[in-house]
């Protein structure tokens, strides 16, 4: 009769293990530890007297709003300065940032729908949702359709692999300085992400309604358009609003490249070393991101409740 201890030892040695996971874990732990060490060494260098003097000058002098530096603090002066900054620099950039991200996410969402449907493996078979897709009946058509779906999914990954900032930088040189460079950069990147998430949604749909309508004679196109899309719609919207918030976040910085969003004013203040103005504009950027975050959360709560 095995003792309790033996039984525990047996279970322990029989537990599922994967050397791939262990190696990956060790590799990431080493990378993380090395990176920590590297940062700490760098931080020691950062504590030199020269750098510290810079930091204190920045905090005490540069960061203080300009009218308050000499005359001391007064609410009135601060209010006047904020109003002036808002009117002359922040308001226009903040609005442009919001509108750019709205257009970009709408384009991305529309482009993601075909990507999501074309990449879904459940639809990429000769006879979707019918029994004739068993292993022994996989012919040339099966292979071609699957390969196409794979390529579409890889395209989504490739679209999101290049950062928006780099895309905007490249597009600016080609299109010249207008809002389209920012819009297209955001739209391309987010279409990749939404396409990928959409594919997963379509693949995870409840197969029963799809199969039922397939048996009733709906073909692939009808299934995709009139069954899969409506069923996946709430989840698509969820992802859409989740990406909208990130879109606004990104749009604030794309201006640094010279597109008329908030970042353009940030960059200008930075170039002129007006750090008080720069910090104010960055705070405005934070505020509109918080606003977008709020809108996105309200929308997502509504979608969750209504579906």
């Amino acid at each position: 009769m095995t003792s309790r201890k033996d039984e525990i030892a047996r279970l322990h040695s029989a537990r599922p293990r994967s050397y791939f996971m262990r190696t990956s874990l060790v590799a990431f732990a080493l990378l993380g530890a090395g990176a920590w060490l590297w940062t700490v060494v760098g931080a020691v260098d950062l504590l030199g007297a020269h750098r510290l003097a810079n930091v204190s000058r920045f905090l005490v002098h540069d960061a203080a709003p300009y009218p308050l530096r000499e005359s001391g603090f007064s609410w009135q002066a601060l209010r006047a300065w904020i109003a002036m900054m808002w009117e002359t620099q922040a308001a226009e950039g903040a609005a442009a940032t919001l509108w750019i991200s709205v257009i970009a996410i709408l384009i991305a969402g529309s482009a993601a729908l075909p990507l999501a449907l074309a990449g879904a493996r459940v639809l990429a078979v000769p006879d979707p949702f019918l029994a004739s897709n068993a292993g022994d009946q996989r012919g040339l058509e099966w292979t071609l359709r699957r390969t196409f779906a794979l390529l579409v999914r890889q395209l989504s990954v490739a679209m999101r692999a290049i950062p928006e900032y780099v895309l905007a930088f490249l597009l600016l040189a080609i299109l010249g300085s207008n809002a389209w460079a920012a819009i297209l950069a955001l739209a391309l990147h987010n279409a990749g992400i939404l396409g990928r998430l959409g594919t997963e949604t379509v693949e995870n749909l409840d197969a029963r309604p799809l199969r039922a309508l397939r048996l009733a004679g709906a073909d692939r196109g009808a299934l995709a358009l009139w069954v899969a899309l409506p069923l996946a719609f709430p989840r698509f919207l969820l992802y859409f609003f989740y990406r909208f918030e990130t879109c606004v976040r990104e749009a604030t910085v794309l201006g640094i490249l010279g597109i008329a969003s908030l970042g353009a004013s940030v960059q200008e203040a930075r170039a002129r070393q007006r750090y008080d103005e720069m910090l104010f504009l960055i705070l405005v950027g934070g505020a509109i991101v918080l606003l977008a975050d709020l809108v996105s959360q309200l929308a997502r709560t509504w979608i969750r409740r209504e579906t």
């Binding site: 940062t39 760098g42 931080a43 260098d45 950062l46 750098r51 810079n54 920045f58 930075r270 720069m278």
Partner: peptide
Amino acid sequence: AAMGLSPV
């Protein structure tokens, strides 16, 4: 702006 260029 505050600390200058450094990995940290």
